[in-house]
Write a protein that binds this DNA or RNA. Structure first.
Lengths: 133, 133
DNA sequence: CTCTCTGCAAATTATTTGCATGATA
DNA sequence: TATCATGCAAATAATTTGCAGAGAG
């Protein structure tokens, strides 16, 4: 039987407090309040939480995996420039869902779509930079 | 000036011959015909080809990166059960593109959407297995 | 008291890098 | 012949595992 531990609760709460963190960011944050927790405990509990469906694991190109503690169905957008992950909610989520053909797959897991490109914020930055040339 | 090398051509061709391979699969395949090529040469040239846009890098959860040598715009579907990657073409590609709101992002890079779930093939298998119980 | 979980250190996997040598413009 | 690329081995980064002891049921 699997026990519910203090450490797992802390890991879960910390992932939810941060913005799509990787395992090391979670560890660093936890260290501030509980300096005795080990990195492998963070990894072990993250894996258990993902297995239980309490966290979502996001694979991003060329980086450590990120985690998401949000439980409401949504998708993700990864900005190639700032490497931030944005949640795709509501209208956009519904539109994408409607477009997914049942031919392709039997079942698309909620949450797990990852789009990739340049976010509005970074785009405006690059346009502004170009004007200065 | 970057030179065009024999090895880079071999790496490119080999990725195209295989079905969304990881770097090691590409290396193993190349070894059969060119046993003197080094693994780091495979990695180095894969990275150059990705940078040039000749290959696409796909990050999948809990595994080594996969590569795709197809240049026509398309998206991807990763089956959580068999861990195969399927290309999403034509009709489905157009429908997904139409659903992507400009609110979310300035520009979604072609090719880079990764859906995740259970493919038709694995779904039928699991239904058949359930009938036998 | 038993058995799971933890923290640490060592192991593993995927990928990158330093360097002496080989190949190409 | 000056550079750039290669192959090898060592280095690095992310993650997992083995194990002795702590803690919960």
């Amino acid at each position: 039987m699997r026990r519910k531990t203090i450490q797992r609760g802390i890991v879960h709460k910390t992932v939810q407090q941060l913005d799509h963190p990787n395992a090391d960011s979670v560890y660093q944050k936890i260290m501030q309040d509980y300096p005795d927790m080990g990195l492998s405990t963070v990894y072990r509990n993250i894996n258990i939480l993902v297995e239980e469906g309490a966290l979502l694991r996001l694979a991003v190109p060329g980086q450590a995996d990120r985690y998401d503690g949000q439980t409401k169905p949504h998708y993700h957008f990864f900005c190639d420039v700032c490497r931030r992950i944005y949640d795709i909610q509501n209208d956009d989520y519904d539109a994408l869902n409607a477009a997914i053909s049942q031919k392709t797959a039997h079942h698309i897991r909620a949450h797990t779509m990852l789009l990739e490109g340049v976010c509005q914020h970074c785009h405006e930055h690059s346009v502004a930079a170009a004007r200065e040339d």
